[in-house]
Computed example of a mutant assay.
Amino acid sequence: MAGYHTRWVRPEPQADDPERIAIREALVFGKALYDRRTALGLTVAELAQRAGMTVDEIECIEEGGTAPTVALLRLLAAALDADVRLTSGHDLGSLWFEAHAA
Rank of each mutant, 00 (worst) to 15 (best):
A2F: 06
A2N: 13
A2I: 14
G3W: 14
G3I: 14
W8L: 15
V9C: 11
R10L: 15
P11V: 12
P11E: 15
P13S: 06
Q14K: 10
A15V: 13
A15M: 13
D16F: 08
D17Y: 07
D17K: 10
D17P: 07
P18R: 08
E19M: 03
I21F: 00
A22I: 04
E25K: 12
L27R: 13
L27I: 07
F29C: 04
G30H: 07
A32S: 01
A32H: 01
L33T: 09
D35K: 09
R36L: 03
T38M: 11
T38P: 03
L40C: 13
L40V: 08
L40R: 15
G41M: 11
G41F: 03
G41R: 13
L42W: 13
L42G: 01
V44R: 08
E46F: 10
E46A: 15
E46D: 12
E46V: 04
A48N: 01
A51K: 06
G52D: 09
T54W: 00
V55K: 10
D56A: 14
I58V: 15
E59S: 08
E59L: 01
E59F: 00
I61K: 06
E62S: 02
E62R: 01
G65Y: 02
A67R: 11
A67N: 07
P68R: 00
T69G: 06
V70L: 08
V70D: 01
A71I: 08
A71K: 12
A71W: 09
A71S: 12
A71E: 15
R74N: 14
L75H: 13
A77E: 00
A77G: 00
D83K: 03
V84T: 02
S88E: 15
G89D: 03
G89A: 04
G89F: 04
G89T: 08
H90S: 14
D91V: 05
G93A: 08
L95C: 05
W96E: 08
W96P: 00
W96A: 06
W96R: 11
F97T: 04
A99Y: 04
A101L: 10
A101P: 06
